[in-house]
Design a binder for these strands. Structure first.
Lengths: 121, 121
DNA sequence: ATATTGTGAATACACGATATGCACAATTTG
DNA sequence: CAAATTGTGCATATCGTGTATTCACAATAT
């Protein structure tokens, strides 16, 4: 597990965990079928609670990124590259919808948004 | 005051207030020197607490959008159109920096981001 | 059988957001 | 000057979320 948890972040720990793991899965850094570490072990390694790990794993499962088997462990789902791309874009689009509503509230136009995007990217 | 507060929103009330008022000021919908309603009255109209209004007003003051005088009230600052545009862009860029870090964590390229932006805008 | 792993419930604590009430300071108004 | 208005500050309380700890249970592997 290559995870960086920050207590300084404004995002809750389980959210950070979810985002980082899901990105790793969708980028193919974690292979299909890969067995995630047991929640107790992950919790200990990251110095966080089991519940927090569980919450992140649940979110991963809701998106179909992993499947869990009691007594065995949690495994990265068998997903095609195309399907992974779909899920990635769904996630990003969903977030972008929220982000742009903020921009729009200031009367920012699409062209202005693109200009700014180029500047910060 | 034309404000819509939603308890369903994930954003805290004072944040919603701040965003809406600042957008109105920066878009020129509230003229320079305009006197905002007394915090007690605003609180009553919106059915929220005085503290919550205060918190939003404080944020507005930190950005130089209003100035407060004890005993008199809170007034929209005297800002040129150029300065307003500057502040608006500062605010949006600041947020966009956070937003794009999320996109980048999925390996999204600038071109892909622009394409998606066009789709959702 | 025993160990491992996930699940679930109970309890507790911290923090932020929010609400209420009261007292104080500065300004305006009569 | 006195009263009303307005912003400020503090104390207290409530509520929800995030987090941690612990224990018991279920399913699987050895």
């Amino acid at each position: 597990m290559n995870i960086a948890i920050s207590n300084a972040s404004d995002k809750p720990i389980y959210q950070q965990l979810f985002e980082q793991i899901s990105a790793q899965i969708l980028k193919g850094e974690l292979e299909n079928g890969y067995c995630l570490p047991p929640i107790r072990q992950a919790a200990q390694e990251l110095s966080i609670s089991v519940i927090t790990v569980k919450k992140a794993w649940e979110a991963l499962e809701r998106y179909g990124l992993i499947h869990t088997v009691t007594g065995k462990g949690c495994f990265v789902a068998e997903l095609s590259a195309d399907r992974k791309l779909e899920i990635r874009n769904e996630m990003i689009l969903k977030q972008m919808l929220l982000d742009t509503s903020y921009y729009k509230s200031f009367g920012l136009t699409l062209d202005e948004a693109i200009e700014m995007l180029k500047k910060v990217y």
